[in-house]
Nucleic acid binder design. Sequence first.
RNA 1: GUGGUUGUAGCUCAGUUGGUUAGAGCGCUGGAUUGUGAUUCCAGAGGUCGCCGGUUCGAACCCGGUCUUCCACCCCA
Length: 446
Amino acid sequence: MKPSIPKGTRDFLPHEVRRRNYIFDVIRKHFHRYGYQPIETPVMENLSTLTGKYGEEGDRLLFKVLNNGDFLGKADSQQLAAQDSDAVLPQISKRGLRYDLTVPFARYVVMHQNDLAFPFKRYAIAPVWRADRPQKGRYNEFYQCDADVVGSDSLLYEAELTQLLDWVFADLGLRVVIRLNNRKILAGLAEIAGHQDRMMDITIAIDKLDKIGEAGVEKELRERGVDAAAIDTIKQFLGVTSLGKVAPLLEKSAIGREGIGELQAVFDTIGATTSRVEFDVTLARGLNYYTGCIYEVAVDTDSHPGIQMGSIAGGGRYADLTGIFGGRDLPGVGISFGAERIYDVLEELQLFPADASEDLEYLLLCLDEASLAHGFELVGQLRRAGRNADLYPAAAKLGKMMKYADQRNAPKVIIIGSEEVKSGKYSVKTMATGEQATQSLSGLIG
RNA sequence: GUGGUUGUAGCUCAGUUGGUUAGAGCGCUGGAUUGUGAUUCCAGAGGUCGCCGGUUCGAACCCGGUCUUCCACCCCA
């Protein structure tokens, strides 16, 4: 049988894992610096926790876990015979893999609300699963790195999370554009256009502006049943790039004015940043639990031309997520880094630091059995002294062992033969330069 | 979920209208070199042509199904 792994999943080689860990470590470091605390939740949740939280599309993309035991025997035989998947599903599956880290977090907050101090700031770096059709930069299993705060509606957190996004990408050496918008501005836009109830349709359409252009958005709006007068109103917003210019257009909408006010306060608080931070009225973001400010981060193509990648981080404020789980209605705001896409971008731009790929310092090669026994002693002494060291486990031909050292990317090789055992002076070869010198144990450790 | 696309050696790929024994480069193994890798030279190993079925005297090649890859939708990190 030929081994394989499920569609949309991947194995990782050691150097790939190291580079992924480099990204996780940078993100985690900044999460800690900003006072976010680590929590963990199961990879499986009850399906009832997950369904209905991500919209119709999200439900379709949930991975369901089959019940154990005689799950078909317990299902309704008529519905089974009728092949009615929707009706049979809840009878044969009660659990599913998490789709993101935010909804499980909301569930967690409600379950542990008496043990948490609010505002509660937490982070999680963990895999999530989506049964999407895979493409490049789009997998069925991928990691999210989330920081969220619940229990406060202070706009200081919007500003803080923007800073956090900026710090992480600055630290990674990646120039990005952080785009901000507010769902209330989008609600105001829909209201002004006379389609208060069609906000989702309108935002989905204008979100595509940079992809399909103004004519494409107009067509999309028509197809979604928005009338010509409303389209004219909406078009006024499309070219607008500053808050000051969009404000007059939303004069007559209370919620719109509120959104403008919130975003203005956030911009006033952020302060100096490395990244470009811009208002973008066409930014929508899919997850429909967002209610206030929304974020999206993309690679700055002015600084890094030729990079084609969707958003590499995103987030937003949600006013009423915990309410669904019957808890106190706690407001929250959070961001999420897309580690896989960041990896692909750093790889393409060769922005990984050199030391993110190898951590072995010494590799010991022994020429005969007596030397091998000595080598085992020596490698132990090096390890106890805190050096990363490894030993080739047999006395083989030196050429063969040198080749292994090359493949292991060992920076230094220690060669041990009868001479070295006798004198305690070892031959140390620096692989990059080919230079060779003799050193005693104290020299190796020092 | 819809439409398309891809699959040949470990990797990247050739392979003529269907015709004998399916090739190359890189990598791998051994040797030139029994104490020196990444360079050079020589030799060698390695393939149920994704899988299942069909058409045919004969299939890597044609047809159907299936899995996988990538792309456009949908949606999204």
